[in-house]
């Protein structure tokens, strides 16, 4: 074991892992985080906490992670390269680990153009691949990015994001290989709606033997309505929502659309469980955390293993 992470233990044991995420509030109330966290207790293994998602200011991921940690949950610190240089990133990693946070997800982040501070400086001192390498070297070499030794290095279980659907598609396996080589232990994918394309990507991942080097958690986001499906298709960068998904959502009564979305998510998980190289699921129920238990249960992923 590289770390004390629960997620690492479950994945190493060969069982399917389940993660989910919460978005911190746009204010100072800790209850907002704790409430969302409680909904996920015993249902998922680790809870991602987003970092200024969609480039909107929110309570810091580290502070929200600390709130969840105090509840006895296992949070995952998300961090984007957009908002911090390498000094601030490393300082926060030390701080997070000092709170017992031992999972993290290394991202570049949405462009500020999409957020509430489009006028902000775009830091990007590192990119996500360089970021992964830095966290790995902190853990395995006990060294800061600048080369100095760290007293009591942080032992983070290191995650990356992958979007199998972004262009150019032919590059997407190679990009995962780059992240794996840089130090990612696991990867959480973009929301999957185009299953054939995801399978094609996974085939490429396995053909390169990458599934033996990096755990792939398949990203699942239940659709609430046909409006959401259309929005995801048209407005969210890098999202691939095939026409039949929109057709299916449009085909049910408005009242029943949410239930249909949940069912669709469950079916997707069941189908993806059988795909070689899929090591677990990352369920991103955006402002819909209360539905995660139902999805996890119906998908046959309960009870969660105790490790």
């Amino acid at each position: 074991m590289k770390t004390d992470s629960v997620l690492e233990k479950i994945l190493t044991s060969g069982q399917l892992a389940v993660t989910s995420e919460v978005g911190p509030p746009r204010g100072t109330d800790p209850e907002a985080v704790k409430k969302k966290g409680e909904l996920l207790r015993g249902v998922v293994d680790v809870v991602n906490v987003t970092d200024n998602q969609t480039a909107m200011v929110r309570m810091s991921s580290m502070a929200a992670c600390a709130h969840l940690k105090q509840l006895g949950l296992h949070p995952m610190l998300q961090m984007v390269t957009r908002d911090r240089n390498r000094l601030a990133m490393q300082a926060d990693i030390l701080g997070a680990y000092s709170h017992g946070i031992d999972n993290m997800l290394c991202l570049s982040g949405d462009h500020p153009k999409f957020g509430d501070h489009p006028m902000a400086a775009n830091v990007h001192d590192l990119d996500s691949v360089q970021f992964l390498r830095m966290v790995k070297d902190m853990r395995d070499e006990g060294k800061f990015q600048g080369g100095d030794e760290i007293t009591d290095p942080p032992k983070m279980f290191i995650g990356a994001a992958a979007n199998p659907f972004a262009d150019p598609f032919e590059l997407r396996v190679a990009r995962l290989a780059k992240k794996s080589a840089a130090g990612a232990d696991f990867v959480q994918t973009q929301c999957i709606y185009n299953i054939p394309k995801f399978k094609e990507w996974m085939k490429g991942v396995c053909a390169r033997g990458l599934h033996k080097e990096i755990y792939v958690l398949a990203g699942i986001t239940p659709m609430k309505s046909v409006g959401m499906a259309r929005y995801m298709k048209n407005k969210v960068p890098g999202m691939d929502v095939p026409a039949d998904i929109i057709k299916r959502m449009a085909g049910v009564e408005k009242k029943k659309a949410a239930a249909e979305g949940i069912t669709m998510a469950v079916e997707m998980i069941q189908e993806l469980k059988e795909v070689e190289g899929v090591a677990g699921f990352h369920i991103m129920a955006i402002e819909w955390e209360r539905k995660v238990p139902e999805i996890v249960e119906r998908a046959g992923l309960l009870p969660r293993p105790s490790v």
């Binding site: 949405d110 360089q130 972004a166 262009d167 890098g238």
Partner: peptide, 19 residues
């Protein structure tokens, strides 16, 4: 747009940037 040295990021669509 993100001066990524090991790109592309996940926002690339049809050869265009997410911005």
């Amino acid at each position: 747009s993100k001066r990524i040295m090991n790109g592309p990021c996940g926002g690339s669509t049809n050869g265009k940037c997410e911005i």
